[in-house]
Amino acid sequence: MIEIVTTGALATVQDRGRDGALKWGVGSSGALDDLALAAGNILLGNDEDAAGIEIQIFPFQARFTADCVFAITGADCAATLDDLPLPPWWRQTAKAGQILNLGLPRQGAWSASRAYLCLGGGVDVPQVLGSRSTQMRGAFGGLDGRALRSGDRLRAGPANNATKHVSFGLSPPALDLPLMAGDLPAVRVLPAAEYDQYTEAAHHALWNDVWRVTPQSNRYGYRLEGTPLLPVTPIETRSHGIVPGVIQVPPNGQPIVQMRDAQPSGGYPKIGVVIAADLWRLGQAPIGSRIRFIRTSWDDAIAAGEQTARWLAEARRLVDLHCGWTRSH
């Protein structure tokens, strides 16, 4: 269905993630911006567990080898189809032979660093342990358990039959659900087990200082730079299960936020956890950008998840209206 013409490193097939394999040491993987992938699937009438391509190095170029409906979400990459500009967060039809090109993410109305290319019917790779996401460490899932390379060919599953030739888009959540603290993008954090064992200065820095996303940030973890976070006395913890979003603090005091390729267990102390509803925001924070942490409560974190769910429900409703699809939800 498509053939990769040019790609930088680390474009991978991802779906919403792999659940239920933690007990075998298998982390969740899945799209760093799960909201963008979900929106792409909604635009195409795909199943919610359909896989797309996560792209984080540009330019990226692919050739359609068959007529195809597709959508690009996430970062605004000045996408073109045979040199014709495409709006971001848009559903589009391609003819066999047409070339899709994604350029550097534009830091305009919103700032983002990863784009998602979704195909009608979803990227058709085998499910492994219940998911199509690429498991880099285990070298399985996705396309042969690895990042995409030039010359790779990917098929799409059967597209939604109700698909018509409709050109339609969505307003991105970065615009609909902005979250800022002062003048900077922010993510909400719940304190974790070792929070109370950090100094007052560390608590103050966590909630008030600016954190820079260093170049050592990737799908495994975001290494942040700022005032070192120091415990009152050195903390020893036994290896235990962790989840994406956990903010670990190694002895140097520079926090690492675990992301979707994080290992499912760890031993570093945890000062907090970025709530699941805000992980997509961090996943889109460009290298070198600065963010803030906002302390939140359980109830507000639950409300944030519900707000995201409402955004997705509204996206489904709008797409149904425009495309005239009838679906059970």
């Binding site: 974790a192 036994r238 299960g241 989840v243 979003g245 359980w298």
Partner: peptide, 14 residues
């Protein structure tokens, strides 16, 4: 035993 939250995704029992 100690019980703590891992965000909204999980909890940890020690």
């Amino acid at each position: 035993p100690r019980i703590s939250l891992l965000g909204t995704s999980a909890l940890l029992f020690e």
